[in-house]
């Protein structure tokens, strides 16, 4: 059940040159949050539309979001400080459904990494992670995965950290080594999601991906956030953002 909460910022942190983290006092909204869901945040009076941001972590009444300052809305969000209040709608959308048994492999690319933290933490059968970044300076949340006892393999586009190349190579590595992995969850740019899906398919492991689309209402009423799945336009904010990669019309 989605709700509207005025959330107080408990902690504001800058993680890299353009990535920021906010810890929010979100009450019932935080308690209801599930992995893969998102919140829709009002970013000042000047921006009419709310900005969808994935839930990176939720513990008790606190909720964490990690985002890249890109345009006007997220730049406004990056200027929030501890004690400020934010108008937040959530938790929204359909998140990740865990397999009955086995481990999950969570895969994040760039600013797609944040939601994989909660997805890994909540996995009933445990999780391993593969994360990809542009270069070493773009790395985020590595200590958080470590603290949660989730093993992480890293890839970077230029080889400044971890594997030199894309995350799908790490997906193949994991799926070769560890036969207890029964599902792959991924979030990141579309080409990355497609290549992760291709890798998972080679091993016959089901893959679930988080899709992105521009939104209006964020709650399933305006039909703006269309994404073609199974030959029909489904809606990222309500039917998704997580879809079975097998059904997505790539």
């Amino acid at each position: 059940m989605p709700m509207q909460n005025i959330c107080r910022v408990l902690q504001a942190e800058q993680l890299t040159a353009d990535v920021f983290s906010l810890l929010l006092e979100a009450g019932a909204l935080a308690r209801a949050a599930k992995p893969g869901q998102f919140v829709n945040i009002k970013c000042g009076e000047g921006n009419l539309l709310r900005r969808p941001i994935s839930i990176c972590d939720a513990e008790g009444d606190t909720l964490r979001v990690v985002f890249q300052a890109k345009g006007e809305g997220t730049r406004w969000l990056a200027q929030r400080r501890s004690g400020d209040e934010l108008d937040v709608l959530g938790p929204l959308g359909h998140g990740y459904d865990y397999p009955e048994t086995g481990k999950v492999l969570v895969v994040g690319g760039g600013i797609g990494v944040p939601p994989m933290l909660l997805a890994g933490k909540r996995a009933p059968g445990g999780a391993v992670a593969a994360v990809g970044f542009r270069d070493q300076s773009a790395c985020i949340l590595l200590e958080d995965f470590e603290e949660a006892n989730i093993p992480v393999k890293i890839a970077s586009d230029n080889g400044t950290v971890g594997h030199h190349g894309f995350v799908d190579a790490l997906v193949r590595e994991y799926l070769t080594e560890d036969k207890t992995i029964s599902a792959v969850f991924a979030c990141g740019p579309r080409p990355m999601l497609k290549s992760v899906f291709t890798a998972a398919k080679e091993f016959g492991v089901p893959c679930f991906v988080s899709m992105e689309e521009r939104m209006g209402c964020g709650i399933g009423a305006c039909l703006v956030c269309a994404c073609s799945v199974g030959g029909h336009y489904r809606h990222v904010c309500k039917d998704g953002p997580v879809f079975n990669a097998e059904e997505v019309d790539w």
């Binding site: 009419l48 521009r214 305006c222 039909l223 703006v224 956030c225 073609s228």
Partner: peptide, 23 residues
């Protein structure tokens, strides 16, 4: 009706443009 291909929305100064296409 399935409606139009995305993107179906663009933010503008104090407004939005939409092209949902009657899904």
């Amino acid at each position: 009706r399935e409606g139009n291909p995305p993107p179906r929305i663009a933010e503008t100064p104090s407004g939005i443009l939409n092209s949902v296409g009657l899904q």
